[in-house]
Design a protein around this nucleic acid. Structure first.
Lengths: 251, 251
DNA sequence: CGTCCAAATTGGTATTATAAGTTTCGCGAT
DNA sequence: ATCGCGAAACTTATAATACCAATTTGGACG
């Protein structure tokens, strides 16, 4: 139903949109018809370019788009594949947009809070036993990493990812992941000066207990409380780093 | 973060586009240093490819990525520009991801609900006079379009966009936009059979009044109620369309 | 069973032609 | 003389063809 006569719009044969868009649209069609599943290999570039009636560089431009969108992945010598693994959106676009329009970290934290509070509430309603186990394990790993900030942060992030997954809503989990990734990267740089991991750990346990006890409202409240505090801690770390940098400039 | 030590699977090094990534990274640097602001023009392709030390087709592959990410925009004969206007993320990646992993519309609605309920709450705290006026105007336009489903839907969407904007959180507004765009496209096809616009309109007015009265919890509750009902209406429309299609197949 | 080579495939470049928008300049009318 | 207007020249993105390089895969051969 691509260029049939359903509309009388004066559209020259393949004139609509750039060739790049055509590639994206075509791959979308392939996926939609389930000719392609995650992990599958696409036809070779030369063949695919012939099928679409465009040149190889043009095709490559389109594939680049899909790769940067996180839908495809290519390995030289092997082929181009539909990305396998958990669904995820690349956070690069959001990062660029934030940089362009000067989104503040305050807004990022606020958005993250809304998403994760929602996720925690759903998780309390739907989490499976296995998902509960995963959360619990991450908390144990945080205990074990109380002296190693970087490692602690890794398990912190994993715990939140587990909660998002336990919401049973992949769309929501994907958005949580996208926003968190940006904050995580920034946090990694300032975590060294962090303090009071024990408090953070206790807050995580509180979230877990509420989810485990199937109490959505408590889970939501615990998550909200945790992120507010995390935001404050983050702000303090940022401030410390800033003042340190200023000091260095004086010298 | 991808290949943690949880599995020893021999994963070939991910060389997904070295030059393409270079282009994205370089443009990101340009933006970060504020050499480039929204609306600005990039150097011509020939010049830029020389600056980066890569060929034009390779550069174009990178630019294609940025264009599909919604960061750039090209006009033949004029040049390539940083996108101007309100910040927005292309919803194509999410659409593809949803198709690939079979995300359901239920999940989409649930995510939209979480985002918009949060936005409504914030809007009740922060909406400016002008933003309130915009919302009110959209409601008036919905009144005027009670007999024209397509037009009604347009103002419906605009109203929600206005609420998201009034949250004062551009990150949140961007995510709302991204998720809504997907549902909107689908809705446009089924809206003709919709019923009871008056009820929907009344729910919108309730949201507006709560925001106007600066009552966050009421605004949240009104938004939650509205989206639940919208979801139900959507499900009914889908069902009608499905049964109609089945009927046609019989004949 | 191991090693190595050849075919397949993506990665990247160079060159050229084409189409579309922008600017400029000259001409004519006022 | 000046203003408006149209056409030509220029700039720029768009796209195709041809070519070589790097890497992986699989099979042939010892």
């Amino acid at each position: 139903m691509t260029n049939s006569s359903s509309k009388l719009k004066i559209v020259p044969p393949v004139r609509s949109g750039q060739t790049t868009e055509q590639v994206v649209a075509r791959v979308y069609e392939l996926i939609k018809r389930e000719d392609l599943k995650p992990g599958d290999r696409l036809p070779p570039e030369r063949e695919l370019s012939k099928q679409l009636g465009i040149s190889r560089p043009s095709l490559r431009a389109g594939l680049s788009s899909l790769i940067s969108m996180g839908v495809l992945q290519s390995r030289q010598g092997a082929g181009t594949f539909i990305v396998d693994g958990p669904p995820a959106l690349d956070s690069e676009p959001l990062r660029l947009l934030a940089q362009l329009h000067g989104f503040s970290f305050e807004h990022m934290f606020e958005t993250r809070s809304i998403l994760e509070v929602g996720a925690a509430g759903l998780a309390a309603e739907r989490a499976t036993g296995e998902q509960l186990a995963t959360m619990s394990e991450e908390i144990a790993d945080m205990f074990a990493a109380l002296e190693d900030p970087q490692q602690f942060l890794v398990h912190d992030v994993s715990f939140h990812r587990a909660v998002a997954a336990a919401s049973g809503n992949p769309t929501l989990a994907t958005l949580v992941e996208m926003v968190s990734a940006i904050l995580y990267e920034r946090r990694r740089e300032t975590i060294e000066r962090a303090h009071d991991f024990k408090e953070a750990l206790e807050l995580h346990r509180r979230i877990y207990r509420a989810i485990r006890a199937r109490k959505p409202e408590e889970a939501r409240e615990a998550m909200r409380d945790h992120i507010v505090r995390a935001h404050k801690a983050f702000a303090i770390e940022e401030e410390q780093q800033r003042s340190k940098r200023d000091k260095k400039l004086e010298a």
